[in-house]
Design a binder for these strands. Structure first.
Lengths: 348, 348
DNA sequence: TCGCAGCGCTAATGCGTATTAGCACCAATG
DNA sequence: CATTGGTGCTAATACGCATTAGCGCTGCGA
């Protein structure tokens, strides 16, 4: 073990200033309650010694004695910085860091959480949750049992992204995918599209479900409103599928999938949006090269991060009451991939 | 204040299992020293109660009582996640996170550090350094006085990037810029270049100094080896300057500057590398679009992050002795921007 | 002169854990 | 039967801080 460097404590300060440890603490915390009084000269003397020694209170002892730490935990269900999810987490973290800095909080990344059955776990034999005053949860899919446990323990947390109830309502800051998708569908309908398709990733996450809900909610006036699952890999068979059906507009959940679909179409000599309109339902989460400007919407990830911190700090210090569930609007993006269906062509 | 949810403590466990708190602690830590003995049935009983209650040791109390926390501090002199420095910090963090996960450490980002005179400060009236067992320092320029203070306090830390002494040697994991630049200069000399220029950013950071040193060390055989400072903005005047001088190859410290220089040259109808070779001395730190494949070298940022954690954990638990200073080699990148100087042209 | 009210401070305690000295007990030994 | 040695556990304390009850002092009014 490294030689434990003897640290300066309040007791040392007290001795040097000729006062008691309690007085040092009182001065340090600037306590000015009705029944706490420190003579100005005593205060100055203590402060001078503190300045001379460069004393800084031990945050650990502080936390043990009182209640709060000004530390916000960040739990990511996948590693936070991998190239793979890079463009997914990064904007959230950006917002989180910005707001944390503003309110003077440090961020604790729970990288030590062990992976069990392919997923990180919040709760394990040595979890460090309590080091933080509260915790922000990031990840497409969040284990419902763990949310339930957090609820039960009364541990302050906020999920980024809407979450279904888990043994009680879950506080979150999410994006309003449903409304955004609904708007896109309405746009397509106004342009004359009648045969729609939703191309999903087959995920069960709330973020997927919300998009689908928004799609179904607005698709009623259409002749046909299909749903199919597709991975970026099988763009050709999926394209066949869409075309055979006479689909004129596809709402594609995953950006990379949309790109794959567009290239597949182009390879066949089809025009986008002339022959097929392709809308994306969110920003890219992995870097994917394309020169198309897709029509779709933008997820306010950065703002979600900021507000997550805001909500969490509010919950921690009790300044916001009640359940906090916020859905932020997504900004529609007018790209070049939504056209008018060609009336001369019925490819069915 | 939020209602403090009554937590399960070792005392509760002890009561439920009919033993003392000390026994619970001993069982929990799996102590099996010569003079510590717990009957198997007692141990099982305690473990059973722990499992039933879902008890988890309070990391704060743990840290106060013993010495270590398995928390690694990360201090960035600029915000860690801004778009601006995004491509600069990200690879480091990736490596840091990866290794931290491997050794079961959490990461504490000191986002609360206040900005004074345009720079974040490690030491302030309420710094939380001691929450972590040690700390990784990230940033192009690191305040020497703060390093000195860290040394004096005996606080374990590692800088990412070579650092000059600061009241004692500074442990670091850096990149060997000097050697990399020397290699590039040698390459250029072999190709016949004789009039060289180093285009720096005028920074005083060690990383800049090392590159310049590597340049000067190898440039001796050249006819002329200039140095000039240039920002991405004034590419035109700088280009004039270089051309007036008959320079045939420029070693450009900053990637974005190199890109600007290349476009300026192209705008004048000059060919790169036909009329001017341009080498870059490191990867882009901000996203900058270019279709040129620059010759230069790659900084092993990710590996630097990994090794920084490795070194730090070693220093903390005392398993590595002595001063840790590592310089990792940079991989040369053969691009398209180093050519042979045209012997027919002497633009001087 | 005594009582009393403010003032300025301190002693004592708790937060939840790790650590250590040492106690009570039993079996084996002389 | 006294002694030793080993076993299984506990009491006590420390870690550094925040908090609170309350102590001693001074000055003032009665």
């Amino acid at each position: 073990m490294a030689a434990p460097p003897k640290r300066v404590t309040q007791r040392d300060i007290a001795r040097l200033a000729g006062v008691s440890q309690a007085t040092v603490s009182l001065v340090l915390n600037n306590r000015a309650d009705a029944d706490i009084r420190i003579a100005p000269e005593t205060r100055d003397r203590v402060l001078r010694v503190i300045a001379e020694t460069g004393y800084v209170a031990d945050p650990v002892a502080r936390r043990l004695a009182s209640r709060f730490n000004r530390i916000i935990g960040v739990f990511t269900y996948e590693p936070a910085f991998p190239s793979g999810s890079r463009d997914f987490f990064h904007p959230f973290l950006l917002g989180i860091e910005e707001y944390a800095e503003r309110v003077g909080c440090d961020l604790l990344l729970f990288t030590s959480a062990p992976v069990v059955d392919g997923r990180r776990r919040i709760f394990h034999h040595d979890n460090r949750l309590r080091l933080a005053d509260g915790c922000i949860l990031l990840g497409r899919e969040i284990d419902s049992a763990e949310l339930q446990r957090l609820n039960r323990d009364g541990y302050p947390y906020v999920a980024v992204g809407r979450r279904d109830d888990a043994g009680g309502p879950v506080p979150y800051v999410g994006a309003d995918y449903a409304t955004a998708v609904t708007r896109l569908v309405e746009m397509a309908l106004r342009r004359g599209h009648r045969r729609l398709a939703y191309v999903g990733m087959g995920m069960t996450a709330e973020s997927s479900a919300d998009r689908r809900d928004g799609y179904l909610a607005a698709a009623a006036p259409a002749e046909s409103a299909r749903q199919l699952a597709m991975a970026a890999g099988d763009s050709d068979t999926s394209l066949d599928d869409l075309l055979a059906d006479g689909t004129t507009v596809a709402f594609v959940e995953d950006f990379a999938t949309a790109v794959a679909l567009e290239s597949a179409a182009r390879r066949r000599g089809l025009r986008v949006p002339g022959d097929l309109s392709i809308l994306t339902l969110g920003d890219p989460t992995v870097p994917v090269p394309t020169d198309m400007a897709f029509t779709g919407f933008r997820i306010p990830r950065e703002e979600m991060g900021r507000q997550a911190v805001e909500v969490l700090t509010g919950v921690i210090d009790g300044s916001v009451g009640g359940l906090q569930q916020r859905l932020l609007p997504c900004e529609l993006v007018e790209g070049d991939t939504l056209g008018t269906p060609d009336p001369a062509v019925d490819r069915r």
